[in-house]
Design a protein around this nucleic acid. Structure first.
Lengths: 208, 208, 208, 208
DNA sequence: AATGAATGAGCCTTCATTCAT
DNA sequence: GATGAATGAAGGCTCATTCAT
């Protein structure tokens, strides 16, 4: 049984990996089951035995990606000493995960809209909510202690991740040559300036 | 003739508007010609008479949107007095256009990937290039004069627009309740701190 | 337009006729769209343009058959002079319609179950109800006047049509060699004895 | 062995019962092996171990039903004292079996067509032939002695069972509220009048 | 310019059946 | 006897596009 389960698990993984390659190359809708079958070596029946339909392959890939990134982020965050280090950890986690998994990242960045309206919408909402709670739990004390600005909650993510994410989109689309790790500090600094309670952000009053 | 052309122009506009609604609701691939026919009131033959195929409807919508936004942006930019005002103008243009055309914005944000690989790819590249040149023309003097940081060119857009764009995506997807205009100044300030040559972008304690 | 409509109507009729032949030969489920396409000469797209799906072809055929028979029956019934002639008309109508349309009859007798549970269920119920009302309207006066037995309404149909229908099933299935018209009078007499108010159905008291 | 056989026999029975429920609910063709697996609790492999394929499950159910009913009928018939009692026994057997096994009856009434053309066709023919012989053996003496009308053999069944069968179909389909047992005597009387050699089957006024 | 019936390649999915464990 | 992953042929249906009117 354990042997057969191992095989079965491998089959699943093969299918997911093949599907990811196809999805990036042709988009989810542009990918046919036949393409995934070709690339994975699995039979059509096996694809359906394991996932039920094409959408479920895509949403599995999407949700696993979210979770994988989320784990990495929360791990690094928990190791961060102070608020500044935490912001740096967020930017670094993003850059590192995206650099290590460019295909997966490309897929997630392009597919969110379809998963939102698909049958896995609930799972996605739940995953988002959970990550949001954990981030809030990290932010709150720093806001309370005055090391982070007190902003509406929905602004932290855009201010911290917005720039690096926009740059990453451009990189993944081939519009810029260098990966985001080249500008690691630029993005982290911008993020810190946007949300950190550094008193220096109004230079006029600061340099008498 | 002018009468008939007027009617024809109306037909085109009806089709584009109906298509936009369908594309947002079902995605471009998920939208069938039949749906657009239904919503626009035009016949199938008419759709093909005016646009040739479905992709051309989508790319027309996309490129017109880009151009419409670009015009507004460049207009406001040309009226900006100094660098700080220019940065403000960029953020404001983005917020204003998105707020005035939420559906169009949603469509453009979701469809770029498909237009890039379609037959209108060249037009898109040309349009992008043109806008990029004009922005660079605006930036250069300010960088030269030291009012803007001297950064690699590919970083300005992410740093200026990244946060407001990420927030806008969340708003258009219904994940946050308030439109981006509520946080106009937050985004503009963050953008300015990221690219403006204020001397305070490194903590005072670090430069003795 | 009228020309095109005529062609279109012909196409519909060709499809229905081809489908009927296929359904009888292989059953509705056993018939593939490809078979109907083959036999009708229409394209797959045309099949779907006209009927939407296979089930709708079957239910159209079914409902039209019911209606065709119903019309013939009610016509003959309206011409019947007295109760005995009416019963005869019912049996004769059944036999004549079945003899004239053996394929259609075979189809209807075999397909009711599937139509009942399909999307045309409501139409079927409505058609049944309508015919039932009309038959009741014919029966009532004769029951009131004492020329027909006063039985629960749901018994007339089985008593009148039951025998000839059971025989017809056997004939259509090839289990008996002769058509039901050979025993026209046997069935009509049995029906009359079952529902007619002849006082002779208890011989013991009648032959002193 | 006997223990394991008992278990196995139970498994077979579970499968048949589950299959019957599925067949009624979705039809034989509409029922998938997966549905039967679900409902019976058996594994797919087990289904195939016991029956070989789906059709064999259906034909087993069908032939067992026929046999079960046939036994009951012949038993009652052998106990009937005279012709009238025999006719009554036929109608009663039908009503009683159908009332005791409504699902099974529904299945048989709906499935005959498919079994006829399947691999169990020969078995069905043989079973029909055997029952027919036995019924003929019962009828013959009564026809010879003049207590039953001398009719073509193929007419007895329709005349005797036709009405109650038609009524039963309506009841099993939910179109009439009361079971056939409510009208036991109506059906038996009609049958007797149709095939019994009572002299009154032509109106008295016609034989002066 | 408008219409909509016709086309048919192509895709997703189902499902009976097999077979190694 | 039991299990369930694997198989792949087959079929229903969609939909962009064409074209005669």
């Amino acid at each position: 049984m354990s042997k057969s389960q191992a095989r079965s698990g491998q089959r699943r993984r093969d299918i997911l990996q093949a599907a990811l390659a196809c999805f990036i190359e042709h988009g989810v809708e542009g990918t046919t089951i036949e393409m995934i079958r070709d690339r994975s070596g699995a039979s059509i029946g096996s694809l359906y035995h394991h996932f039920g339909n094409k959408e479920r392959i895509a949403s599995t890939l999407f949700l696993q990606g979210l979770q994988d990134f989320s784990q990495a982020l929360l791990q690094r965050l928990s190791e961060a000493g102070d608020a500044r280090a935490g912001i740096q950890a967020m930017v670094d986690s993003y850059i590192d995960w995206v650099s290590a998994n460019p295909d997966w990242a490309r897929f997630i960045l392009q597919t969110r809209g379809q998963v939102i309206h698909g049958e896995a919408a609930d799972k996605l909402t739940a995953a988002n909510r959970e990550q949001f709670q954990k981030l809030r739990a990290w932010l709150s004390p720093h806001v309370a202690s005055g090391t982070l600005k007190n902003l509406p909650l929905e602004l932290y993510r855009p201010l911290i991740i917005g720039p690096v994410q926009d740059y990453t989109r451009a990189w993944l689309a081939g519009r810029v040559p260098h990966g985001p790790d080249r500008y690691r500090d630029v993005f982290a600094t911008a993020a810190w300036q946007a949300v950190g309670a550094n008193t220096a952000f109004k230079p006029a009053s600061e340099s008498p």
